[in-house]
Amino acid sequence: MGEISIKINIADRVYPLRVETEEEEIIRHAAKLVNERIKELQDNYAVRDKQDLLSMCVLQYATGMIKAERKAQQHEDGVEQQVHELDALLNNFFSK
C-alpha cells in the first residue's frame, strides 16, 4: 500500500518510524506489549534504569522467539517424517 510515518513510544522515548501501512497495527501492538512488559518488570523488581528494563524485556522476548522457532522446527521435522512414511506406504501399495 505504501509507507507512512508514525511515532512509537517505548520506555518513555518517542521513536519516529516509516512503516508499511499494513504493518502499523502490528508495530503499535508490539510497542504496547513491550511497554506493558517493562511496567511489569519495573513493578516486580527493584530496577529503575530504563536500559536495564529494556534489556530484560528484549531477553525475555528473544528467549520466547527462540523457543517458538525450535518448537516449529520440531513440528516441521515430525510432519516431514510422516510424509516420508506415507510416501513409503503409498509406494508399497501401488507397487503391488
Rank of each mutant, 00 (worst) to 15 (best):
K71M: 05
S95R: 03
I4R: 00
V47Y: 10
V79H: 03
D52T: 10
L89W: 01
D52E: 13
S95Q: 11
I4M: 04
D49V: 09
Y45G: 00
L89T: 02
H29C: 14
R13I: 02
L90I: 10
E85D: 15
I8K: 02
Q82Y: 02
L53Y: 02
R70A: 01
E80Q: 11
K32M: 14
Q81V: 05
Q60M: 01
E69P: 03
V47G: 13
Q60T: 00
Y15F: 14
E85R: 12
L33G: 06
V47M: 12
V83R: 02
K71A: 10
A68K: 08
R70K: 15
Y61H: 12
A68L: 09
N91T: 14
E36Q: 10
D87P: 03
L41A: 08
A62C: 09
D52L: 09
H29G: 11
K71T: 08
E25I: 01
E20M: 02
A31H: 04
E23P: 02
S5I: 00
S95A: 07
S95E: 06
S55C: 12
A31W: 03
Q60I: 03
I6A: 00
V34F: 08
D52Y: 00
S55G: 15
V47E: 13
K50Y: 12
E85N: 10
E25K: 04
D52Q: 14
E76C: 13
N91D: 15
Y45N: 03
A72P: 01
R18K: 15
A46Q: 15
L54S: 06
E36F: 10
Y61L: 12
S95T: 06
L59Q: 13
L54K: 11
Q51S: 13
V34P: 11
E3W: 03
N91R: 15
A46H: 07
K32L: 14
G2P: 12
I38M: 06
V83G: 00
N35Q: 13
N35E: 14
H84W: 03
A72N: 02
S55H: 04
A68I: 06
K32I: 04
V34L: 14
E3D: 11
R13E: 06
R28Q: 01
A62M: 04
F94L: 11
A30Y: 15
L41G: 07
E40R: 08
L89E: 06
S55E: 09
S95N: 03
I66P: 05
E69L: 00
R70W: 05
E23V: 01
V19G: 05
R70P: 01
R70T: 15
Q51M: 10
S95M: 08
A11S: 10
E23R: 02
L41D: 10
M65W: 15
N92I: 02
L90A: 12
A11E: 03
G2E: 09
V47P: 13
L53D: 12
R18L: 05
N35H: 12
F93Q: 07
V14T: 12
Q60N: 02
I6R: 04
I66K: 09
E24L: 00
S95D: 08
L41C: 10
V58N: 10
E24R: 06
Q60P: 07
T63C: 03
A68T: 02
Y61F: 15
K50E: 08
